[in-house]
């Protein structure tokens, strides 16, 4: 198990959110959409220019920009 940033995850890679180190509006929006510690996510895909990223979380698809995803640390296998 190791912790990496969403930016460094591969498409279709899965993981569990370890921490979200951001408060304020961005933090609130991220959490409102169900990205909280312990949530399982999967990288669904990336936009043609690699940014934003689409995540699968709690059965729906969520997009966020790479610089927004940088605040989220994910625990992955391997």
């Amino acid at each position: 198990m190791k912790k990496i940033n969403i930016r460094n995850m591969q498409v279709n890679q899965e993981g569990t959110i370890a921490s979200i180190k951001i408060g304020g509006e961005l933090g609130r929006r991220i959490r409102d959409m169900g990205l909280v510690t312990g949530t399982e996510i999967k990288i669904q895909g990336r936009a043609p220019l690699y940014d934003p990223v689409a995540l699968r979380v709690k059965g729906f698809t969520l997009t966020l920009r790479n610089n927004e995803a940088d605040h989220i640390e994910v625990e992955v296998n391997g």
Partner: peptide
Amino acid sequence: STPFVMELPP
């Protein structure tokens, strides 16, 4: 910028 955090609805 306003956070992009957005749902891709089915």
